[in-house]
């Protein structure tokens, strides 16, 4: 479980990891036109890593959401803040 206090660290870790994976020099290793199972390696690499990043982002967001939901029972809805009236 990721503790709530670490949500930013999780985000930043994921961000840095994605940067490393999407930028050279790591990029250079996988950016090849060779076909694997008739699919270009770079095509598989980019969409595969991209999907993983999305997955991890979703996991981070979901875990936090569950924790927030647990805490919400005790805490008033803090999501809408400031004086703002509903559209009339």
């Amino acid at each position: 479980m990721i503790r709530t206090g670490r949500k930013k660290e999780w985000s930043i870790l994921l961000f840095v990891a994605s940067l490393i994976l999407f930028l050279p020099p790591v990029l250079k290793i996988f950016d090849r036109a060779d076909l694997f199972f008739n699919i270009p390696l770079s095509y598989m690499y980019f969409f595969g890593v991209w999907a993983l990043v999305i997955l991890f982002t979703a996991l981070g967001a979901r875990r936090r959401m569950m924790e927030e939901d647990d805490r919400k029972s005790g805490k008033a809805d803090s999501s809408s803040v400031g004086p703002r009236q509903e559209p009339s």
Binding site: K8, S11, F15, T57
Partner: peptide, 26 residues
């Protein structure tokens, strides 16, 4: 498309803050 993905990975650092500011200051 990878650039926006990276920014949304950082949602809790950047977007949440910008959105909160927009709401508070209309």
């Amino acid at each position: 498309y990878l650039g926006p993905t990276l920014v949304f990975v950082l949602w809790s650092v950047i977007w949440v803050k910008i959105i909160r500011i927009c709401k508070v200051h209309r």
